[in-house]
Design a protein around this nucleic acid. Structure first.
Lengths: 371, 371
DNA sequence: CTGAAAGCGCTAACAG
DNA sequence: CTGTTAGCGCTTTCAG
């Protein structure tokens, strides 16, 4: 029994604790099955189309896959038959015999983060245009969860996988390597598996530090999500701190915001900064949501921005260009990351060699009202 | 050829314009195929596990599906064999013979909208716990696009589908009805297909109107997304206007914000309101993102909130409780909608009858600093 | 250009 | 409790 639950856990097959789910499935099976039976009888299959069109199964298949192999005349007839029967292909049958699965796994930390939401939309959109389907998994910033999802996805024989970040558990990497499919890591410039599309988060931190230095700030602080939660935020903040120290700034404070990036966390973070170092001149937030919260906290306290305190965020979220004052930020090329990742993935699936397996898409410092 | 492209279009099978994608597939097939071949040879299948464990195929299958039918002893052996071979089930094979497809289609307007992002996370999470996989589609607030996605998803023989809203194109409804699978409509209380989990957006509008009236406002305005883009926002705003008129408010202005709900649109909307009716006392925004933009615009213009102008939004987004002043809003029970929808869906999949096919989860007016 | 036939890997009657 | 036996619907050689 132990071995099973261990296996079940690895596979993430339903409920790891007591297999209760599996039992449930058992209970349903009869009814579900009966229902399916009905559906089966009603749903037209390829053979029906073939019969109606007066051709073979093979020909019908070809009309869908390689139309140029079929004569104009037959093609028309088959298409008409499909229309008539409202034929809907069965991907399970296709995927089984077939040779590729038209499924791409996309694993992100959380879709609540606008950056990833945009990425999800872009990726699904681009892929669907090529006839691929996206299976989404949310790791919740946990590499254990990511691991579970990966193993799970593998059951779909995905044609490829897109991940966020380059820090994955060993089993995750092993599974992916064993599956022998293209894997793209995003939002990082360097790959830990094979391919990467992104930028250097350390450079982000450095750039902001130098920017603050350039406009005369010497006492600075950084408010960021915990590095063990969001490694990329961690890189940005630690690089900022390091760069600030190297620039010989006199006060370099590092505050960790509670929980995920949110205005609330930002407000608390800023309060903490002011408590520890009241004469701070500029604060870098690892995310615009935090920065917005920081800005609100300043408003509450009557601290003038940028007069008394300068702020800079990361992400260029929609509100950042609208707040009063507007929030300076780092703009990552979100759409470009998605587009390049998809492009690279499809190239690899095609069996071709991409121009490069590592793409640095860079980022942009957007200076606005807050600093 | 026409018939094909028409069909292809309906099915949404790749590129509707010229079948170029299909041709592409053709071109890849050789390489892709070869690659697959390799994988096939390496990946353990159920038969391998069976052999290693010294049992039949069926028994292995049973260990996964109905463990209680298998003796403790055998179960252990099989599990061990799976472990040893790193066995990963092939869902395509399963789904084909099988009797149910463990796939649920979830179609939302856009994951950039926080409300739907939360819903996506909740739904995928809850479903994955039951061994179901979620295929996500973004309709971009277009019912034509939704239609395309639905037809597409049907190829996966989904066990069920979750939609947003109750306004769908006729073909969408027909397809879904024909497929004969459970369909849940969400974010609305009334179903146009079968089941619904949500609340009345008209009641939202009415409630806010009455609230404004109650605190003494007589000149009001509403800023909302275009009804033809977001029908639910449209219901909220039109109900607000109607209720305000019935309450005999003296000025009831209706402004449509450009594009999707964003702070930018909200700021523009507020400007428009002030241009048309400078003595407006309260503004209802169809979304908190719009309300935030409106608040910023007030700050820019030196309009005191709530002193000079009261604001109310919808959605209770994270920033609404943090801004200065905090934003009054309508809080929809997001998590509850997701949970109830999933619960109802699974009940139906099981072939059982849910307690109710229409659930009104209600909503809450959260009065804060802005009004 | 078209068809016949052999599976893809797994599930589920039906017997033991 | 376990094994045998048929497929699930589609793709893909291999021949015409």
């Amino acid at each position: 029994m132990e071995a099973i639950s261990k296996y079940v856990e690895r596979i993430g097959f339903s409920c790891p604790c007591d297999l209760s789910i599996i039992r449930l499935e058992f209970r349903w099976s009869r009814q579900v099955q009966r229902k399916r039976q009905e559906q089966k009888n009603t749903r037209a299959k390829m053979a029906d189309v073939a019969k109606l069109a007066g051709v073979s199964n093979t020909t019908v298949s070809r009309v869908l896959r390689n139309p140029e192999m079929v004569s104009q005349d037959v093609r028309e007839r088959v298409a008409a038959a499909m229309e008539r029967l409202s034929y809907v292909p069965n991907f399970f049958a296709g995927g089984l015999s077939a040779t590729q699965s038209r499924i791409i796994g996309l694993i992100i930390p959380s879709v609540r983060n606008t950056a990833f939401a945009v990425m999800v939309e872009e990726v699904t959109e681009l892929l669907s245009r090529q006839g691929y389907y996206t299976l989404i998994g949310h790791s919740n910033y946990s590499s254990t969860e990511e691991e579970r999802i990966v193993v799970n996805f593998l059951s779909w024989s995905p044609a490829g996988v897109i991940l966020v970040g380059n820090q994955h558990s060993r089993p995750t990497i092993t599974s992916l390597l064993t599956a022998n499919i293209p894997v793209i890591e995003t939002w990082e410039r360097d790959a830990s598996i094979d391919c990467a599309v992104g930028f250097s988060h350390r450079e982000v931190g450095e750039k902001v530090a130098r920017y603050f230095f350039g406009i005369g700030c010497r006492k600075v602080a950084v408010v960021g999500s915990a590095a063990d939660i969001d490694p990329r935020a961690g890189k940005r903040t630690s690089a900022f701190r390091q760069a600030a120290l190297e620039l010989r700034m006199t006060g370099v404070l590092d505050v960790t915001a509670n929980g995920r990036a949110s205005p609330e966390g930002g407000a608390e973070g800023l309060s903490e900064v002011l408590r520890l170092q009241p004469d701070t001149e500029a604060v870098f937030f690892s995310n615009d949501a935090l920065a917005l919260g920081g800005l609100f906290e300043c408003q509450r306290r009557g601290i003038r921005v940028p007069g008394d305190l300068k702020l800079c965020g990361f992400g260029d979220l929609p509100f950042s260009s609208q707040s009063v004052p507007t929030i300076s930020t780092i703009r990552p090329p979100r759409a470009e990351i998605a587009a390049k990742a998809v492009e690279m993935l499809l190239t690899l699936i095609r069996g071709e060699e991409p121009v490069s397996r590592k793409i640095d898409v860079g980022f942009e410092l957007v200076v606005r009202g807050s600093g």
